[in-house]
């Protein structure tokens, strides 16, 4: 019996600043970028690749010979990006391009700050204000008018500009050796509950605990399932369960960690409601943590009704009922 209402869904955001250790070859590349220099690697066949691959794209040999290339290059191919996506180098329409920098033999992928470009067009590096962010130090490329863009504080002929005619319009910077780059990754998803779980969640919003019975094995599942894990068929017949049961087993969480939403220490317990055939994890409060035990009889402590939503969080925690503990034999098969 599945509700005719559509399944519930809600945003799920994943966000982390990854720390990328670079190793020698990529570390030198990133350090070069922080100094406003572009380094390529000489491959096994003598070609110069930018960015420098750590291992040769043909032979897999480690590539350690880095050479400086120019900061001006030629567009090999391009594609318009009329609607930039989050995280891309520019927020207004731009073009992606593969750019063969002067002195390099193979092109790199980067952005060009122009709504249209042309194959064969000359483009020049535009540096970010910040440094130490690896490839993002190279903010994007701009069409090269041969004049420079003033990024070198008006000075031309910066030191250390290598072969290939970098036009000398950017002054190198002093920079620390870059060994690690931070890469933020933020992704947005829409997480959906199954039709069966949605019915259960809507029940919780009304203060009811709705399990479902598997038509094949007759076990009562809470939450109900899109597929009974042992029979592979959806659970069907609704079974309303009481908000009391027992603790089968538990642990006491003492460890803090990133993203934690409950302050330790807390008791995370498997609660088996009377009439259910499977336990679920919840919190047990209302007595000292060291008094929580296997077989303890507990009941739900609901949040105030005006705080209810379609979530098991409507039950703030479970608390001891004071009834005698359940005998071990009655729950040994649920461990």
């Amino acid at each position: 019996m599945t509700s005719s209402l559509p399944p519930l869904s809600a945003p799920l955001d994943i966000e982390f600043d990854y720390t990328r250790s670079l190793g020698s070859t990529l570390g030198r590349f990133a350090t070069g970028l922080a100094q406003r220099r572009v380094l390529g690697a000489r491959g096994s066949d003598g070609r110069v690749h930018v960015p420098p691959p750590e291992y040769d794209p043909g032979t897999g040999a480690p590539l350690t010979e880095l050479v400086e290339v120019g900061q001006v290059g030629t567009v090999v191919t391009w594609a318009a990006q009329p609607q930039p996506l989050e995280g891309q180098p520019l927020r207004h329409p731009f073009c992606w391009a593969m750019i063969r920098l002067d002195g390099a033999d193979t092109p790199l992928v980067h952005a060009v700050d122009a709504p249209r470009v042309a194959t064969g067009m000359r483009v020049r590096a535009h540096w970010a204000d910040t440094q130490g962010n690896g490839i993002r130090d190279l903010a994007y490329f701009v069409p090269d008018d041969g004049q420079g863009d003033g990024q070198g504080d008006g000075q031309s002929g910066g030191q250390g500009i290598g072969q290939g005619g970098g036009r000398g319009d950017v002054r190198t910077r002093q920079a620390e050796v870059v060994t690690t780059v931070t890469t933020p990754i933020r992704l947005r998803y829409r997480h959906s509950a199954s039709p069966e779980e949605s019915r259960y969640l809507r029940g919780l919003a009304q203060g009811r605990i709705l399990g479902q019975r598997c038509p094949a094995c007759d076990k009562v599942y809470l939450p109900p399932r899109g597929a009974c894990p042992t029979d592979g068929v959806p659970t069907v017949d609704e079974v309303e369960l009481p908000d009391r049961g027992i603790v089968t087993t538990f642990c006491i969480v003492n460890v803090p960690f990133l993203g934690q939403r409950i302050t330790p220490p807390y008791v995370a317990a498997y609660v088996l409601l009377d009439g259910a055939d499977i336990a679920f994890l919840h919190l047990v409060l209302g007595c000292p943590a060291d008094e929580v035990r296997m077989g303890l009889r507990v009941e739900a402590a609901w949040k105030p009704r005006d705080q209810w939503g379609t979530t098991l969080e409507n039950i703030d925690h479970f608390r001891p009922t004071g009834e005698p503990d359940a005998p071990y034999e009655t729950y040994a098969g649920h461990l």
Binding site: L12, F16, T19, F257, L258
Partner: peptide, 21 residues
């Protein structure tokens, strides 16, 4: 060391209880 396994393994999807550790 690129990230944090506790974080990755404890991402609580919507509708679930953030009891995991």
């Amino acid at each position: 060391s690129e990230s944090n396994a506790m974080w990755a393994l404890s991402i609580a999807p919507p509708f679930s209880l953030p009891v995991g550790a």
